[in-house]
């Protein structure tokens, strides 16, 4: 890490690239000049970065929550009905291979320039991925568990709630992790193109102002947010579930 920072600073100091393209990370090139660290801190104290981060994350949460509900529902329908599997299931896996940002021009046309378009592509991307993983997970529930539950008198929604859903939790968590990463990408791509506030829009502003210090500061935030959620939310839940089930001993 320290070596990487040193190399970065060196490139900046020897002005291999002009300063606006390759701003220094910590030590300013001329007294009082811009650094990425300074922009980063002032962005937080001034509230500009903090607010943009908040906007992006709250969009992510809204879109992702809707996508989880929709994805599980569609996944369940595909699991339940052979007909829906052959029709919708095929359709979904085709759509899934289309990068979700491709939908953005269409979203702009339908919903206009704004939050709705961004949320639309978040939902689209995460839902398709979750539909595929959840239907595969439901299909892999052990028939033995279902028979045990049925012989005890469970059926219908009770069977789903107490057996099918908990039985698929390990796979669903893995699926949520993938969908979450897709959703986070969709947020930024949407904001970058849609200009409706948030980190993506700020990034685009940085580009047009040729303020690479701002661009880099935002890239750092994007990476850090992604890592925090992945490591502290998903990996933690995954580990505790696997330990409880005895699938994997703790590393």
């Amino acid at each position: 890490m320290a070596i990487l920072i040193a190399i970065w600073e060196a490139i900046s100091k020897f002005e291999i690239f002009p300063a606006f393209m390759w701003p220094p990370l910590i030590i300013p090139n001329d007294p009082g000049g811009v650094t990425i660290l300074k922009t980063f801190i002032s962005g937080f104290t001034g509230g500009q970065l903090l607010e943009a981060t908040y906007v992006s994350i709250s969009r992510l949460l809204v879109g992702f929550s809707i996508a989880v509900v929709l994805g599980l529902f569609l996944g369940f329908l595909i699991y339940k009905s052979k007909l829906i599997d052959d029709t919708l299931g095929f359709f979904v896996s085709t759509l899934q291979s289309v990068p979700n940002i491709v939908w953005f021009p269409l979203a702009l046309l339908w919903f206009g320039l704004g939050v709705e378009s961004v949320i639309f592509i978040i939902i689209l991307g995460a839902t398709l991925s979750l539909t595929v993983t959840s239907s595969a997970a439901f299909k892999s529930v052990s028939p033995l568990h279902i028979r045990v539950a049925r012989t005890m008198g469970s059926s219908g929604f009770h069977l789903f709630r107490t057996v099918i859903l908990p039985a698929t939790i390990p796979q669903l968590i893995a699926g949520l992790r993938v969908a979450w990463a897709l959703a986070w990408r969709a947020v930024l791509a949407g904001e970058l193109l849609g200009g409706s506030g948030g980190l993506g829009t700020l990034l685009d502003m940085g580009r047009s102002l040729q303020a690479m210090d701002l661009v880099f500061a935002i890239m750092i935030i994007i990476g850090v947010v992604g890592t925090i959620i992945d490591n502290f939310v998903f990996v933690k839940i995954e580990r505790s579930v696997l330990r409880k089930w005895g699938i994997q001993t703790v590393k």
Partner: peptide, 11 residues
Amino acid sequence: VVFQESGLFPW
């Protein structure tokens, strides 16, 4: 029914 494999719910 008691099955060949216990079919206990691991969760």
